[in-house]
C-alpha cells in the first residue's frame, strides 16, 4: 500500500499539476488571443488584410506546432532559466508549456473565429462598426461556444504536456509517475497518478462542455 509520505507526495503533485495547468493556460491565452485574432483579421478576406504579416504569423505558428514538446523543453532551457531562474520544477515548467501552447491555442482561436458567419460581420460593417468593435462585439461573442470548447481542449492538452514535462523533472503528477512508477517500479504509484490525471481531465471536459452548451443561444430551448 501507499505510505503516508507517498500520499503526501501525490497530494503535492496534484496541486503542482493544477498550478502548472492553470497558470500555463492563463499565460498562453494572454499571448494566443491577440495572435489568433491577428491571424484572422490579416487574412486576404479579413477585416484588415495584411498578407505579409499573415504569412509570417502563419509560419511562426506552424513552426511552434511542429516541434515535439519534449524537445522544446530542452531547447528553451536558456529562456526558462532567464524567466524562472531555474530549469526544473513546476514554476519553471510553465515557461515551455506556454511556449508550446501559444501556437496551438492561437490556431484553435483562429478556427473558432473563422466560424463566425461573414454575413453578420458585413451587417456590423454596414452599421458603421469599427474593427475593434467588430472583434469585441461580433467575432468573440458569436464564437463564444466554440472558444469555450477550444479552451477545454487546450487545458486538457496542457495537462498532458505538464505530465510529459515530468520526464525532465518538471514536477507534478507526471514527475511522480516517472520517478516512482517507471524508475522504481512502484506500479501502484503510477496507477494512482494516472487515475488522478484522468479524473482531472474528465472533470475539466465535463465542466467545459456544460458551460459551452449552457451559454449557446443558438440552441432552441
Amino acid at each position: 500500500m501507499l505510505t503516508e509520505t507517498m500520499i503526501n507526495e501525490i497530494i503535492n503533485g496534484t496541486i503542482a499539476t493544477l498550478y502548472m495547468t492553470i497558470f500555463s493556460t492563463l499565460f498562453s491565452y494572454l499571448f494566443a488571443f491577440p495572435l489568433g485574432i491577428a491571424l484572422v483579421i490579416t487574412r486576404k478576406d479579413g477585416l484588415y488584410p495584411l498578407l505579409g504579416v499573415n504569412k509570417v504569423l502563419d509560419a511562426i505558428v506552424n513552426l511552434g506546432r511542429s516541434i515535439p514538446f519534449i524537445i522544446l523543453i530542452v531547447v528553451v532551457i536558456p529562456i526558462t532559466k532567464l524567466i524562472a531562474g531555474k530549469s526544473y520544477g513546476p514554476t519553471a515548467t510553465i515557461v515551455p508549456l506556454v511556449i508550446a501552447a501559444v501556437p496551438f491555442i492561437a490556431r484553435l482561436i483562429e478556427s473558432s473565429l473563422l466560424e463566425v458567419d461573414n454575413g453578420v460581420i458585413e451587417a456590423a460593417q454596414s452599421m458603421g462598426a469599427s474593427i475593434p468593435t467588430i472583434i469585441l462585439k461580433v467575432l468573440i461573442p458569436e464564437a463564444k461556444t466554440s472558444l469555450i470548447v477550444g479552451a477545454t481542449i487546450a487545458t486538457g492538452t496542457i495537462i498532458s504536456y505538464s505530465a510529459m514535462a515530468g520526464a525532465v523533472g518538471g514536477g507534478g503528477l507526471g514527475d511522480i509517475a516517472i520517478r516512482y512508477g517507471y524508475i522504481r517500479y512502484q506500479t501502484e504509484v503510477m496507477m494512482v497518478t494516472v487515475i488522478l490525471l484522468v479524473i482531472i481531465v474528465q472533470i475539466l471536459q465535463i465542466i467545459g462542455m456544460k458551460i459551452a452548451t449552457k451559454t449557446d443561444k443558438r440552441i432552441r430551448n
Binding site: D117, E122, A123, S126, M127, G128, V138, E142, T145, R218
Partner: peptide, 19 residues
Amino acid sequence: RKLRQNIGMIFQQFNLLMQ
C-alpha cells in the same frame, strides 16, 4: 463609418447576432 450609421441595411440571410 459615421455616415453608415444613417443607412440601414437588411440581407437575404437576416445576419442577426445569434448569441
